[in-house]
């Protein structure tokens, strides 16, 4: 099993195969499943992601039980239809799909965790926008997920992917890095460029804390996925342009792990610090749970 981004990039060069292919082969070998079975499993994940994206922007949208989040994917959709956006329509499409997915998650709908439920919007934000922008086929989209997942495994094994141990940088940060690298492959970039995109995406979100208001995966989690997708696309474009991260990808992952360990407990998914600890954050908690913990 691959233990570093460096090994993956070297193998890709040596074997002249894209990262997605190496990860499919690794999965078949470790699970004992056939290529068709592994492929079908990933297709089901992609279908689940698409269903969540569509659900969150139908009609008036979806709303969480607390009423803290919901309906904003629809607002973005209408804004795109009626106004000239500042980021451009491509970026706004990614943001809309990312938010849509996490609104569905907050409303206890069905999502595919990528790598976590709190960060489930980041990859869909990227992959469905690329489907339109680059005309990706279903095969390319499934490959996108293998690449993202394979690189995510290295990140998860070295730095973890739980907000409670590593902060949001380990969740949305990881998702963004995985997505940046996979976007590079989808756009025809090399494995080396994927590793550059991954490194830059991590560097841009390093230190991001996990501070859910009232302990709910709503504020700020839903909108954090917008920056996850956006940062992935920015990092992928920089890598495709030939920009280089001075710090190699594997060292960025180690830095992410160390920063995570250094975060105080109040900023690791306890709902105590950061935005959760603001006067408004505390008021929301008291209102929802009837106490002022």
């Amino acid at each position: 099993m691959y233990d570093s981004i460096k090994e993956i990039v070297e193998d890709s060069k040596k074997q002249n195969k894209p990262i997605s292919e190496l990860i499919i082969e690794q999965e078949c070998k470790s699970s004992g499943l056939s290529r068709d079975e592994v492929w079908a499993k990933m297709k089901k994940n992609l279908d689940t992601m698409r269903a969540a994206v569509e659900k969150g922007q139908k009609g008036k949208g979806v709303f969480s039980k607390t009423g803290l989040t919901g309906g904003e994917a629809v607002k973005i959709k209408e804004y795109r239809e009626n106004k000239k956006t500042l980021c451009g329509d491509t970026m706004m499409e990614a943001i809309q799909d990312a938010i849509s997915t996490n609104e569905v998650n907050a409303s206890m709908g069905v999502v595919c965790a990528t790598p976590t439920a709190g960060s489930a919007g980041t990859l869909p934000g990227i992959v469905f926008m690329l489907e339109n922008r680059l005309g990706l086929s279903e095969e390319q989209m499934i490959r996108f997920l293998f690449t993202a997942g394979g690189l995510g495994m290295v990140m998860a094994n070295h730095a973890g992917i739980a907000g409670a141990t590593g902060g949001c940088q380990a969740e949305v940060g990881s998702a963004s890095a995985m997505g940046a690298a996979a976007a590079v492959e989808a756009a025809g970039g090399t494995a080396e460029q994927s590793s550059q995109a991954l490194a830059m995406a991590i560097a841009n979100l390093l230190g991001l804390v996990c501070d859910p208001v009232a302990g709910l995966v709503e504020v700020p989690c839903v909108k954090r996925n917008a920056i996850g997708s956006g940062n992935a696309l920015i990092s992928a474009d920089m890598a495709l342009a030939g920009c280089i991260s001075k710090i190699p990808a594997d060292e960025c992952i180690e830095a992410l792990a160390k920063v995570g360990h250094g975060l105080p407990e109040s900023l690791r998914e306890t709902g105590l610090g950061g935005l959760a600890g603001t006067p408004t954050g505390k008021r929301i908690r008291a209102k929802i749970f009837g106490d002022a913990e």
């Binding site: 999965e27 499993k41 069905v110 595919c112 965790a113 439920a117 495994m153 739980a162 995966v217």
Partner: peptide, 18 residues
């Protein structure tokens, strides 16, 4: 984490994987 499906997946009811 030993499978790509630990990272892409599980398919689940929200709101939190952990």
């Amino acid at each position: 984490y030993r499978s790509v499906f630990d990272i892409i997946g599980p398919i689940m009811i929200g709101p939190s994987s952990s």
